[in-house]
Design a protein around this nucleic acid. Sequence first.
DNA 1: GTCTGTGCAAACCCTTTGCACGATG
DNA 2: CATCGTGCAAAGGGTTTGCACAGAC
Lengths: 138, 138
Amino acid sequence: MIRALRAAGFRVTPQRLAVLRILAKSAGHPGAGDVHRAARRAFPAISLATVYKTLAALKAVGQVLELEFSGLPNRYDGCRPGPHPHVICQACGRIVDPRNLDLAPTVAVLAGETGFAIHGSRVDFFGTCPACRRRAHC
Amino acid sequence: MIRALRAAGFRVTPQRLAVLRILAKSAGHPGAGDVHRAARRAFPAISLATVYKTLAALKAVGQVLELEFSGLPNRYDGCRPGPHPHVICQACGRIVDPRNLDLAPTVAVLAGETGFAIHGSRVDFFGTCPACRRRAHC
DNA sequence: GTCTGTGCAAACCCTTTGCACGATG
DNA sequence: CATCGTGCAAAGGGTTTGCACAGAC
């Protein structure tokens, strides 16, 4: 990530390092607020605006995937920066990355049917995760 | 739609009829602003708030599908109110409904892999529509 | 030393809400 | 005639931006 930032002419500041470390460590998909809170532990004066700007820089160099949710805070994935499907628990907000799901055949079918040149996708599945299912005694 | 509203105890007002007619007629996926502008032609005094409230009522009775986009206005589909995949042109904003796409097998695979109980999905593909591809002489 | 990054606060924009008035069943 | 819907204006909330100061290269 550091290399990617420098290569694009971005400077590497302590604040950016803090954000970067948090993204690299979090296996989940933290929100901007989560990143900010975590970054404050290493760098108490860091502002939310700086976190957003750093996330934007990392997105610009393809090192982080931004997941936007209307009405809910965005979530960020620094472990798998390419677009990929997600499975989201509506009870606890947990986001899981499925492994065995290849969209390429689907994209090919759609391109043929619609005539679109397809460049990307956003694929989310909503449900209840195993832990929350148990908690609701179902 | 009228029946569904009445059955749920909603009143049928001229404003709601105007919104309703626009949704039934638009094959595309208009935004709230589009609906408002169109509704003003039949009912010049109608407010944007009323449009939003009517859309919410129709959503509540399952007669319209709301597509939320972070940063962009929501889009509404009164023709196919159930969730379904979309193909979106990033150049002109057009939204197309593909026909030959069944997500059921995918959902089954995901449920097995993740242990989630999957209740819904949001599947969008982004690209360039045939018209915009021609316009960009590609 | 120059130019970029930071932090603060205000702006943004679509959407939602509070409220007094008007219309519906 | 009780209740719900309308229209206006203001609030709401995550994100973005303008600006002056500070720090990286």
